[in-house]
Computed example of a mutant assay.
Amino acid sequence: MVLSGVGDALGYKNASWEFCRSGERIHEEAKELGGIESVTVTPKDWRVSDDTVMHIATAEALLTEWSDSDQLYSSIALKYLESMKDMDGRAPGITCSRKVHMLDPHKKGGLIIPFDQAGGGCGAAMRAAPIGLYFWRPEQLDKLVSVSIESGRMTHHHPTGYLGSLAVALFVSYSVQKRPLREWGAGLLRTLDTAKEYIIQHSPQRDHKEHMDNWTYFEQHWKDYLALRQLTSGKTDAVFEDHDVKSVKERDAFYKSLSYSGTGGASGHDAPIIAYEALLNTWRPVGDKRRQWIDLCEHSMLHGGDSDSTGIVAAACWGAIEGYTGVPENHYRLGVSRSPSLTGEGYSPESYP
């Protein structure tokens, strides 16, 4: 949770990096700061965006007292509505801002907004990591699927949007399980079958055609990406030789090629793809963890796309895999000690389980 906030804050940089479309310029600015490893992340100087506010809202809802799905979903909706009060200076997404106010947690059927042809953004994905932390066990997969979809389509009622929520929750659960990275994409494709069946069973009949007509965009983009990296089977490591992304300029171009409309990471399909790509490029089971973390920051948070949304996902996975291993203390220590809103009263890094 804490590193998710770090990934968001670094990618956001008080809105200036999130909305900068030149990764090279962002890297130049980071260099002027002494390199990303030298940055001291504090709530005052490095604000978190709407991503973290809604990420926390998801976690708080999961930790309320609930005994069935209806109670949980009502709690999630209430927390999302409440989170809108803390969006000043955080550049909230238009879809989240508009759609969350359509929710009525006190009305039967008031938690599912109409199908939205423009609901394929990354707003559902950016806030879904706590679902993977809560339902991380393999035997909880059905629950992870249902909660990630239902929480996602509260604002993003389109397969590209709510499947982004599923992908992030699933990848965080894989991180906790310590599953090899090469297996993640193949696991997601298998899980999409479960997700499709869930949607067929739990959507109004009038929406079935819209869901199925728009389903293939997310699925096909993931199939194409996994084929590119030779990860379709989940049994071999990623291959990068033919599509190198070592330079900042090459990464920007590649991330843009994955996108829906030219901004890498702005949609439900490519935010988790870019976070996954960044992890594949940088994380290794052994090696210099500090270098790996800095590389992950540069790949997932310092690019010319929706850098806070890809950063929050990549950092969430790192935290679930490695904890604070390799992370410079100046990236999280002051934020932990000075921001009860992010971590809870009495929190300290040493007490983190």
Rank of each mutant, 00 (worst) to 15 (best):
S16R: 10
L81P: 00
Q205W: 00
Y332A: 02
R290S: 06
T42R: 01
P105A: 10
A169G: 15
E250N: 09
M126D: 11
A266H: 11
S259F: 03
T282E: 02
N214M: 10
L103H: 05
L33T: 11
V48D: 05
I199R: 00
I149M: 09
F171C: 14
K235T: 15
P43M: 06
S267G: 13
L133E: 13
H211T: 04
Y198T: 02
D252A: 06
W318F: 07
I200S: 13
R338N: 10
D224L: 09
N281R: 13
D308V: 06
S247L: 04
E60S: 08
S151T: 15
Q292V: 00
G109H: 05
Y174M: 09
R25Y: 12
T52P: 05
D86H: 14
A316F: 08
V6E: 02
Y347W: 15
F218I: 02
Q201T: 08
W46E: 01
K44D: 14
C96E: 10
L33W: 14
K85V: 02
E277C: 13
R284K: 13
Y324D: 07
G234E: 03
P353H: 11
I56V: 15
V176Y: 03
T95I: 15
G344Q: 09
V48W: 14
P130H: 07
D88T: 13
C317E: 10
Y324S: 08
L3S: 01
A167P: 11
F240V: 02
E241Y: 07
K246R: 13
P130G: 04
H211P: 00
A124H: 03
T160S: 15
L3R: 05
L10V: 08
T64Y: 06
T160C: 15
G311W: 04
Y217M: 12
D306R: 01
M84V: 10
H27S: 08
I113T: 09
D88Q: 14
D224H: 12
G305N: 08
G268N: 01
H299L: 07
G346C: 06
L33F: 12
P130M: 07
A266P: 07
D237V: 06
V239Q: 14
Y12E: 07
P114N: 09
L181V: 05
R137E: 15
D252R: 01
L62A: 05
R333E: 11
E197Y: 05
Q220E: 11
I149A: 05
L81S: 00
G23S: 10
L72V: 00
S151L: 09
V172W: 01
I26S: 02
E345I: 09
V6M: 03
W222V: 04
M84G: 06
H208W: 14
Y12L: 13
T232K: 03
G268S: 06
D213H: 12
R190P: 00
L78P: 00
L144H: 04
G234H: 02
A57G: 12
R25S: 12
A186Q: 04
T191K: 11
G319P: 00
K249Q: 14
L111K: 02
A15R: 10
A77I: 04
S22T: 02
W222F: 09
N14M: 09
I26E: 05
M87L: 15
S351E: 12
G262I: 11
S146D: 12
P105K: 11
M301Y: 00
E322I: 03
